[in-house]
Structures are given as C-alpha cells and as structure tokens.
C-alpha cells in the first residue's frame, strides 16, 4: 500500500519541484527587471535534455559517472515522496525525518562523486569544496529538524510533527524552539539548493558549474532534477515541520503547506540569491558554524528547557 502511494507521490514531487524552479526563475527575472522564461521552462529543458545524446568523457569512471545522476535523482524523489506520504498521514514511522534528510545528503554526495569521476579538474576542485560545504550545513540542518520533530508521536516523524501542529498550531509561531529552528533551517536552505551566496561548488565563474561540468543530455536532465527535487523537498520539509497550519480539512492544509514551501523558498533561495554576492569556500564553513549552528543548538536547548 505504502509502495503504491510512494509511486504515486513520485511524479507529484518531481512536477512540483520543476514548477517551483519555474517560479524561481520568473521571480528572479522580474526582480532584475527582465521578462524571464515561461513558468514551464524547466519542463521544456528537462524534455529537451532527455532527447540529447549521451556523452561520456573517456577519462571518466564510466559506471559511476553514468549511474549517479539516475541514482541521485531517484533518492531525491524518494525523499520527497516519503515526505508527501508523511504529510498525508499514511507513513507513520519514527525517525522518517532523519531518513529524508539522509537521503537528500546521499543524493547530493552521489552527484558530486559522479561528476568528479569525469576526470575534469574543475569537478575535482568542486568535490573538495562540496564535501566541506555539505558537512558544514547538514549538521545545523539536522539539529534544527530534530528539534522541530522531537515533540510529536511517533517521534522524529513528519506525521508526528503534523499531528502536533494540528493540535497546537504552527510550531514556529507557537514555540521559541520552533522559531529558532526555522531560522536555522532557512539559512541552510540556500546550501541545499546550491544557490548564491553558497553555490561555491557549482559557481559558474569560479569552477564552471563544478561537478556538473561534464554532464550533458539525459545525465544533466537527471542531475538537474535531483537538485531541483532536493531544493523543493527541503522547502516542503520546512513548511510542514514548522509552519503547518490547522485549517480544518487535510487537503486544504496540504495545499497551504505547499504554498508555504514556495513562499519559504522564495525568501531563502530566490530573494537571497538575487541580493547578495557569492561567498568564499572558507566563509561557508565559518558561517554555518556560527549563526545557524547557534540557532539550531538554541532551538534544541529551548526544547529541552521547555520540557523539564
């Protein structure tokens, strides 16, 4: 039953993610005074890339290079589908929040390793950067998510967090811990989405799209899909763990939750990415060790203090 639901959720999360990418590009363009591409441009891109030739660099580790975009996008879509299932209430497993975040992490890592296996020196530089960035933001992100979902039953699950918020209102608005955790999570989101100011791994002017450099055609389509799904899943996770609003009926609440995800992503990914310059690699690690880490630990502390 659950397997069937996950299968149904997969195209849903993929479509929603690509659609958000379209919104992102449109809003970004309008903020810069441009007309921008049509909303469905990411779909056009996806279909067109799929139809192109598959090119594998001779110097690459062929198996890793060709399979990792597929695996990565599959993992990201699975993470998104699990989240949707949790939101719908059909998945009630303790710790699925941790599972979702881990899947996203592995998806990112796989893509980096796959890209780096191309043998391109830029991809190698990008992998070194990527690993350091990954571990610097994943820690505060994980802590803030744990702080958010620790109150529900089943423990550390999307369904539990949703049940809790249906009773007592959005977590970020009803508790100090929730507000702090949301702030920390929002600061981590640009890194999850690999957008400025934290796009040091794929910065085009510095490392020429980094590990994505050699990917093209269907591989690039899948790699972009993986990125796009990770980005939107993170936003949806934030919206469901921190800002789930009880509105009476579940479908309305789910729609509101999705809308909330778009708004959160527009703030922390689209707007932030437009307003600021890219930071240096060292600055990324330094940044996440300070503000987001402090906020996340503060959230955890506030949670524990509130309980005892």
């Amino acid at each position: 039953m659950l397997a069937l639901e996950l299968l149904a959720a997969a195209p849903l999360i993929a479509t929603a993610s690509l659609l958000y990418d379209g919104v992102d590009r449109k809003v970004r363009a309008r903020m810069q005074g441009r007309v921008g591409p049509p909303l469905v441009q990411p779909f056009y891109d996806f279909v067109k890339l799929l139809s192109k030739d598959r090119i594998v660099p001779r110097a690459s580790a062929r198996l890793i290079y060709t399979t990792s975009p597929l695996l990565s996008s599959a993992l990201a879509v699975t993470a998104g589908s699990l989240l949707l299932a949790g939101l719908a209430g059909s998945l009630r497993v303790p710790g699925d929040v941790v599972l979702i975040l881990s899947l996203l992490t592995v998806a990112s890592l796989l893509l980096m390793v796959g890209g780096a296996s191309s043998g391109n020196p830029y991809a190698a530089v990008s992998l070194a950067r990527g690993v350091s960035v990954l571990f610097s933001y994943k820690v505060p992100m994980m802590i803030s998510v744990i702080a958010a979902s620790a109150g529900g039953a089943p423990l550390l699950s999307v369904a539990g967090a949703v049940e809790l918020q249906r009773k007592s209102g959005p977590l970020a608005l009803s508790s100090v811990s929730g507000a702090l955790a949301l702030a920390s999570f929002l600061l981590c989101m640009p890194s999850e989405g690999e957008v400025t100011p934290f796009d040091v791994t794929t910065a085009e002017t510095e490392v020429v799209y980094g590990f994505m450099i050699e990917y093209g055609g269907p591989y690039l389509a899948l790699a972009k899909l993986a990125k796009s799904v990770s980005r939107f899943t993170a936003a949806l996770l934030a919206s469901s763990l921190f800002l789930y609003t009880p509105l009476g009926s579940r479908p309305v609440e789910l729609a509101a939750c999705a809308l909330g995800a778009v708004v959160l992503a527009l703030i922390s990914i689209t707007a932030l990415g437009t307003f600021v310059a890219r930071v240096r690699v060292r600055q990324v690690a330094g940044f996440y060790l300070r503000l987001p880490m402090v906020l996340a630990l503060g959230a955890l502390a506030a949670l524990l203090l509130g309980r005892f």
């Binding site: 363009a29 903020m31 810069q32 005074g33 441009r34 007309v35 707007a271 437009t274 307003f275 600021v276």
Partner: peptide, 21 residues
C-alpha cells in the same frame, strides 16, 4: 548597499520589465 539593491529589486518585481519578449 544591499538595502538599496533589495529596495530596487522589490519595486522592479511589480513594474513593467525592461526587456521585451
């Protein structure tokens, strides 16, 4: 400066774009 850029971008959002299709 960022504040100015933000203000400019925010007002741009609701104005006619400078580019044409």
């Amino acid at each position: 400066g960022i504040g100015k850029i933000m203000k400019d971008a925010a007002t741009r959002l609701f104005r006619k774009p400078s580019t044409i299709g």
